[in-house]
Design a protein around this nucleic acid. Structure first.
Lengths: 369, 369
DNA sequence: AGGGCACCTGGAATCGATATCGCAAGGGTC
DNA sequence: GACCCTTGCGATATCGATTCCAGGTGCCCT
């Protein structure tokens, strides 16, 4: 690998001049610049960014901490952040926590040691004291995505308005007469998302004179199997409520699978709404009501906050709130009353036909074969 | 930030001894180690990995080049690779090409400059000469995922057996009597995936005495809209074949959306198969036949190849082929004959009812409201 | 003519770690 | 007791860039 010394030697100038010529320093003669560029072209010289970073005390790297890249929504955020960050000449260091809060903290330390200039955080647990301490010890700007850590004063935040979104969605169900609504959330208090959604749900209930029923509140890590398990358990106890609100999008396939397998017709035997929108929600039959928001925008705004802080170092951190929209679809276009009727009708029908097992799947398969 | 000198001063030892104590060097007395550890604990010292990398000529970073992180399959691969790589004590630098081949090349250069120890490649276009040159100039191990660059001798590769998978899938359609099969692929010759799939498709046709019909071969960048457009255009010309093979998974939602919108019933009016498996394919009604493979395994094997080469520097690069499985589902459980009957029946039925527009969607909505 | 000021450029110090070398002390062998 | 080898540790050079400082040149102004 050719070094700056080699280039300087060939161009017959000092190493410092090579740096100046290549970094667009104002006071460089055209002649010198030409000589340097010629030598660079000749040797194919590319500066060693490790060495440059060491001396200049800036690696021109940004770290992204993400709780789980398998979640397509988070992957999308990383995608768009990487786009903005690399356009600005920075490189992304990726740290995936794989759902483990301890890794959040480790990642901050690692990124710090690697001298990243800034960190974007989509951690597992924003309440983790060690994580907060690690972030407080990080010298550069920090931006939280759908997270909030009031104690961390150097941190900006970009959040979606989950409270309002969830409130409206729940209201929609309540207005259709649903009084028993299952809330199937992620870890409820580890992130801003989780808390705000639950708060919105509770507020809507309260405004309709209802209280949160503990038996209708389920929470677990955002892994696919959890959705199946909860539905299976409720059906086993014959305790499926008339409406279901599903939080983190990894739950959705599991919930739908189990409902189908048990022959429960979404939009007829139960109302179903998701707090994240996905292609599956749109293309499912019937399409599933969901809250949608632009991950693209979330990422871009977050990247802008970071990059602005990196450019002008005296910019105050701030919090930006982005809108969430309710996408009403047929999966919730059923009243509580209709659900009750449909279920009792089916129950007697099934008794007559003594059908059992997985009528939903069988029906789907039978129609096509 | 405390440096190694500060730690050495506090411990009353030389900086070199601090390095030795912390890096597990064999010839270090317990006493010295204790002193160093105490000083480290006292100061909270964390070595500057930029400086360490500069001197030791190894950044302990691995670069991952990915064509598009919005594709959940690729995100999954990145997820699992990051897991294996970080477990081995390396950090991941992420470079996203956003579908632009020029960025593939830029990314290799950037990663090289940042002195990554190895590169994993899921590029847009493996045929790009500049990319190949850049990779050849990279000194460390390279692993290609679902890509092949024979000219690059330092590169290992992990590929899925797309040829055989696609062959079998196509065979299944042919055996159901389909003679007109639309092949909707990604950019066909830029990657191993694209080429092998098409080769498998063609071979199956040939073995049944058929040739590839140019009007039934469509290719475009793997963006969602493309799927819609192709189907729309065929339906406008009333030229939808009896079976469709869809390649890259971003196309699937578009294809399904357009078919639904036009009232074409998947599994009855057309047979549909996908070359990538997704939750949508499984949960769609009817479920969609697809080729499945373990991205987890792909990533783990690739990571293992890389890490083995990093550990024992004289390990030969090699190519690993992983299996692909055909998941037969109801979407293809319709013969060409049945498709013809269904279509003519519907056509006359529709004429009688003068139905038009988007009967598929309307039907779905009507059932639920 | 001389002083002051831009403008360019080179030399040397520096960033913070690790690698190399050399020295001293301790232990074993003949 | 002399010699050699091993072990433990410090001093110093080094990785490859950037930054800082100083000096030279040319120009303008007084």
């Amino acid at each position: 690998m050719t070094t700056i010394k080699e280039v300087a030697r060939r161009a017959g100038v000092a190493p410092a001049s090579v740096t100046r010529a290549l970094s667009g320093h104002p006071n460089v003669s055209d002649e010198l610049r030409q000589k340097v560029l010629a030598a660079v072209a000749e040797t194919g010289y590319k500066p060693d960014l490790l060495a440059a970073g060491l001396r200049s005390r800036s690696s021109r790297c940004v770290g992204i901490i993400v709780s789980d890249l398998i979640n397509p929504l988070l992957a999308e955020v990383v995608h768009y952040m990487e786009m903005a960050i690399s356009q600005a000449g920075y490189t992304v260091l990726l740290a995936n926590s794989h759902g483990d809060p301890a890794r959040d903290t480790d990642s901050v330390h690692t990124l710090h040691q690697r001298r990243v200039d800034a960190i974007a955080v989509m951690c597992v647990d924003e309440r983790n004291a060690e994580l907060q301490q690690a972030l407080a010890g990080f010298p550069g700007p920090v931006v939280l995505l759908d997270r909030e850590i009031p104690s961390c004063e150097t941190a900006s935040a970009v959040v979606s308005d989950h409270y309002r979104g969830t409130y409206r969605l729940t209201e929609h169900l309540l207005e259709a007469g649903h009084r028993e609504i299952l809330y199937l959330g992620g870890l409820l208090d580890t992130t801003h998302v989780g808390r705000e959604r639950l708060r919105g749900f509770q507020a809507a209930l309260a405004d309709h004179g209802l209280e949160m029923r503990p038996d209708l509140l389920r929470a677990s890590r955002a892994v696919a199997q959890a959705g199946r398990d909860v539905i299976a358990e409720l059906l086993d106890r014959d305790a499926l409520p008339s409406a279901i609100v599903v939080g983190p999008n990894p739950f959705v396939p599991g919930v739908l699978t189990e409902l189908h397998a048990r022959g429960v017709r979404v939009g007829q035997d139960v109302a179903l709404a998701s707090l994240d929108d996905t292609p599956l929600a749109v293309l499912h039959q019937p399409p599933v009501t969901a809250l949608s928001r632009s991950m693209d925008e979330l990422a871009r705004v977050a990247a802008r906050l970071l990059l602005d802080q990196l450019a002008g170092s005296r910019i105050q951190p701030r919090t930006v709130v982005l809108p969430v929209e309710v996408q009403l679809r047929p999966s919730t276009a059923v009243t509580a009353e209709a659900v009750a009727q449909n279920r009792s009708r089916r129950r007697s029908g099934r008794r007559r036909a003594s059908g059992d097992g997985a009528p939903g799947l069988r029906r789907g398969a039978g129609a096509a074969v």
